[in-house]
């Protein structure tokens, strides 16, 4: 039952090879095996969106996938957004969240950003309705969402200028 499977996964541009039990959730793999703790685990049943990552460039919830399923695939986590982790090089999305107070405790923020990155690439000029629909799968208990929506509008303007 506990047969280990060897998987190779590219995370934030780096290739990792690990042995995993089939039941290991992808979120736990990313946090505990790889040590990338920016991917947060909130509800662990696919409702809150805190664990959102990009799986082959599409946002998915990493708590309802198994690590073994990531074999041969490419993942980007929140750490990939600012590879050198420096304040000067914040991604426009991150800078906008800071500017608009799009977070308080920050627990949900990584999930929001990973949801929003491909959204803004596909929709450079989103309406407020578009934004609210895009983030409908991410729960924030602090902000009431208004500042997040504001942050996305600022980010859209910044990213379009690039």
């Amino acid at each position: 039952m506990n047969t280990l499977h060897t998987i190779t996964v590219i995370i934030n541009g780096q290739s990792y090879e690990r042995e995993v039990e089939p039941r290991l959730l992808l979120s736990d793999f990313i946090r505990h095996e790889i040590g990338l703790t920016g991917t947060h685990v909130g509800c662990e049943h696919g409702v809150c969106g805190a664990c959102t990552i990009l799986f082959d460039d599409e946002p998915v919830r990493s708590c309802i996938m198994f690590a073994v399923q990531a074999n041969g695939h490419t993942i980007m986590t929140i750490e990939g957004l600012t590879p050198d982790a420096s304040e000067e090089n914040l991604h426009p999305l991150q800078a906008s969240f800071r500017e608009a107070h799009g977070l308080q405790c920050g627990f949900c923020t990584g999930g929001f950003l990973m949801t929003l990155l491909p959204f803004l690439q596909e929709n450079p000029n989103p309406s407020e309705q578009d934004i609210r629909e895009a983030i409908s799968g991410n729960i924030c208990r602090c902000t009431g969402y208004q500042h997040i929506v504001d942050a996305v509008k600022i980010a859209a303007a910044k990213m379009e200028g690039q």
């Binding site: 696919g46 969106g49 959102t52 799986f55 599409e58 946002p59 998915v60 919830r61 309802i64 996938m65 949801t115 959204f119 895009a134 409908s136 799968g137």
Partner: peptide, 9 residues
Amino acid sequence: IAHPQIRNR
């Protein structure tokens, strides 16, 4: 159906 993250998978 659910949210985009769910429909992606």
